[in-house]
Design a protein around this nucleic acid. Structure first.
Lengths: 134, 134
DNA sequence: AGTTGACCTGGAGTGCACTCCAGCTTCTAA
DNA sequence: TTAGAAGCTGGAGTGCACTCCAGGTCAACT
């Protein structure tokens, strides 16, 4: 089974331009071409694109994705290093999640504060309402 | 209590340049100045910087932070809109966390896969080791 | 009086990750 | 057979969020 660039784009969530860009910078191997010279992505290509988008979504910089891509291309001998990269990235992601959750608490606090203000305001109309500072 | 720009920077986690940049683009109100013309951040300024960094950490674009900042400056009447922004942002953050967690599963799967490969390799030496495709 | 270090300003430069464009070819359907 | 859609290439442009720089001021120590 092969896929046009449009199909590859819509299935991976990347834009057509981005796919060509990734190819230019060596993040994806140039896919096969059909008789008319158009890109024909294989199932393997699609799977790799799918994985790339996971790395991208989790904020891995292109530089690092490229390193991973090149290792992958180099074959089995690099599996150890690839695993390391993934493990390190995973811990980055965990940290990021923790960071977001921490910020979420502040957000919740703030929203609750606005709600409290509204209740106060509804309770005994105007008069003396402090803007919180933070 | 007032704080120098260096103190404001190290306490907020922003760089000195970023603090001046935020001021230039109207994201923070120009702080007071000491007799020598240097910035003297107040406790309120510091609290606002702290909150800003939460918004930033959670990926709120500067454009939106600025909107929030301006509303805040406009006083109580804008509290409703500010609350809306925060609520919307909170749901963005929740989505983002979910997205990261989803990607995390893929990462875990991949790492487990590498580990399986290693065990196989250790088990009966060379012979027949498939590179997984995705 | 001189040196050092923190700070000041306006403006230019950077890195990242795309995104768009002009001008061309190739396939598909009426 | 011809119009329109989809794809191609190389290269330029964009948006975001900083980051750096030159050249100057100010306060504190020696």
């Amino acid at each position: 089974m092969t896929y046009s660039i449009a199909e590859a784009a819509s299935s991976s969530g990347l834009s057509i331009d981005t796919l060509r860009y990734y190819e230019r910078i060596g993040l994806v191997e140039p896919p096969a071409r059909d008789p008319g010279g158009r890109r024909a992505y294989s199932d393997d290509d699609m799977a790799w694109l799918g994985f790339l988008t996971k790395l991208r979504t989790t904020g891995m910089p292109i530089r690092r994705m490229r390193e991973y891509a090149h290792l992958r291309h180099a074959g089995l001998a690099t599996a150890g290093r690839r695993k390391e990269i993934l493990i390190e990235h995973r811990s980055d992601v965990l940290e990021r999640i923790a960071e977001l959750q921490n910020c979420l608490e502040v957000l919740n606090y703030k929203v609750a504060n606005y709600e409290r203000c509204e209740r106060d305001l509804a309770g005994q109309e105007p008069y003396l309402v402090h803007e919180e500072s933070a």
